[in-house]
């Protein structure tokens, strides 16, 4: 749930980028961070632990409009994507307001995509969170890799529910802000209701 800071009159919303390892979650957030007005963004925090793995989360506040007189501050997080870092993922999911699932279009990662998505559902269940309350946007990243799976196949495998999805090449920024704007809008929409 969003945290409301009455003294600063801010609503803090947490958006988590989920997905398999090396799928482009960090690239998404880094791209956003690099293009934001320095006055509106906080510090980008990266945590790297254990065997030089890319185990980290990022933190990025991003102000967008107001809701009932309260400014909204978005906190963007990534999770470690590798299968065996589930404890961290579960922890980071706590209090999530919006989700972006960054899928890797590389065909060799289809099982990792599916596993990660199921893992997301499991972890949401453990937090008693429901996708009816939390917007989930899917992003088909790495559309430029040779042999990328067709979007139709990704949709079939990963998105039978028909969540909003975007194609992306995060390293080039393609689709990155589209995804973020969509999830932000969904989060704000729920806040207003």
């Amino acid at each position: 749930m969003s945290l409301i800071n009455y003294s600063s009159r801010e609503i803090n919303c947490k958006i988590v980028y989920y997905g398999p390892g090396l799928g482009g979650k960090t690239t998404n957030i880094q791209y956003v961070y690099d293009r934001l007005n320095p006055d509106t963004k906080g510090k980008l925090v990266t945590l790297a632990t254990e065997m030089d793995r890319t185990l980290f989360f990022d933190f990025l506040p991003l102000e967008l409009g107001t809701v009932k007189g309260f400014k909204t501050r978005f906190h963007l997080y990534t999770v470690p994507g590798q299968v065996y870092y589930n404890a961290s993922r579960k922890l980071i999911l706590r209090g999530v307001d919006g989700l972006v699932f960054v899928a890797d279009s590389d065909e060799c990662r289809i099982d990792a995509n599916i596993e990660s998505l199921y893992n997301l559902y499991d972890n949401l269940d453990e937090h008693n969170l429901d996708l009816k309350d939390i917007p989930l946007i899917l992003q088909w990243n790495k559309r430029d890799v040779p042999g990328a799976l067709p979007v139709e196949e990704l949709e079939t495998e990963l998105n039978p529910q028909g969540f909003t999805s975007f194609e992306a090449v995060a390293v080039k920024g393609t689709g990155v802000f589209d995804t973020l704007k969509c999830v932000s809008k969904e989060v704000l929409h729920r806040l207003q209701n």
Binding site: P20, G21, L22, R53, Q82, V83, C108, R109, A112, S116
Partner: peptide, 9 residues
């Protein structure tokens, strides 16, 4: 998924 993790990393 586990083995492809090993591969990509």
């Amino acid at each position: 998924a586990l083995v492809s993790d090993i591969l990509v990393y």
